[in-house]
Amino acid sequence: EDEVKKIVKRLIENGVDDEQIKEIVKRQGVDERIVDKVLKELK
């Protein structure tokens, strides 16, 4: 989960929008619920 957080944070800093972040992270095989949780925490 910490790995996911790092990735998502980097994507947000690069101006990637939420939908794209979800797609990218899902392609890495991460559960969507984890992605949603991380996005909420970082906003």
Rank of each mutant, 00 (worst) to 15 (best):
31 D>H: 09
6 K>N: 12
32 E>P: 14
35 V>R: 01
30 V>P: 02
22 K>L: 12
42 L>P: 02
38 V>C: 06
19 E>M: 12
20 Q>E: 13
25 V>A: 10
18 D>F: 15
18 D>Y: 13
31 D>K: 06
12 I>H: 14
23 E>P: 01
37 K>V: 05
29 G>K: 04
20 Q>K: 13
37 K>C: 05
30 V>F: 14
33 R>W: 13
23 E>S: 10
41 E>F: 02
24 I>V: 08
42 L>Y: 03
23 E>Q: 12
29 G>V: 04
23 E>L: 06
36 D>N: 08
31 D>L: 09
18 D>M: 12
20 Q>M: 14
40 K>A: 15
30 V>Q: 05
25 V>M: 15
8 V>D: 00
24 I>E: 06
28 Q>E: 09
35 V>Y: 05
9 K>Y: 02
15 G>M: 07
33 R>C: 06
33 R>H: 13
19 E>S: 10
10 R>V: 12
3 E>V: 12
10 R>S: 12
2 D>A: 13
39 L>K: 03
37 K>F: 04
31 D>E: 11
16 V>E: 07
9 K>M: 09
2 D>K: 08
27 R>E: 09
28 Q>S: 13
43 K>T: 09
9 K>L: 08
34 I>F: 07
38 V>K: 02
13 E>T: 08
11 L>E: 01
1 E>D: 09
11 L>G: 01
37 K>S: 07
11 L>M: 10
24 I>S: 04
33 R>F: 12
40 K>W: 05
33 R>M: 11
20 Q>Y: 09
39 L>M: 08
30 V>L: 13
14 N>H: 12
15 G>N: 08
7 I>A: 08
14 N>R: 14
20 Q>P: 02
7 I>E: 08
29 G>C: 04
40 K>F: 04
19 E>P: 07
5 K>G: 04
15 G>H: 09
12 I>M: 14
5 K>A: 08
21 I>M: 03
32 E>W: 04
30 V>S: 04
13 E>S: 09
39 L>F: 04
34 I>H: 05
7 I>K: 07
36 D>R: 04
42 L>R: 04
1 E>P: 09
6 K>I: 12
6 K>L: 10
32 E>H: 08
38 V>S: 02
35 V>N: 00
11 L>F: 05
17 D>I: 09
19 E>N: 12
27 R>Q: 13
15 G>K: 06
19 E>H: 09
3 E>R: 10
29 G>N: 07
37 K>G: 05
21 I>W: 01
35 V>A: 07
30 V>K: 06
7 I>C: 05
43 K>S: 13
19 E>K: 10
8 V>K: 00
27 R>G: 12
11 L>K: 00
12 I>K: 11
10 R>P: 04
7 I>P: 00
23 E>Y: 01
42 L>C: 02
1 E>W: 14
31 D>Y: 02
20 Q>F: 09
1 E>V: 13
36 D>S: 07
26 K>G: 12
17 D>A: 14
30 V>R: 05
16 V>M: 15
7 I>F: 03
11 L>Y: 05
9 K>F: 02
36 D>E: 15
18 D>H: 10
29 G>W: 03
29 G>E: 03
19 E>C: 05
24 I>P: 00
8 V>W: 00
24 I>Y: 03
35 V>W: 03
36 D>Q: 05
38 V>Y: 07
22 K>E: 03
13 E>C: 05
4 V>M: 06
39 L>D: 01
24 I>Q: 07
24 I>R: 06
1 E>N: 10
40 K>H: 15
4 V>E: 01
6 K>V: 12
7 I>Q: 09
11 L>P: 00
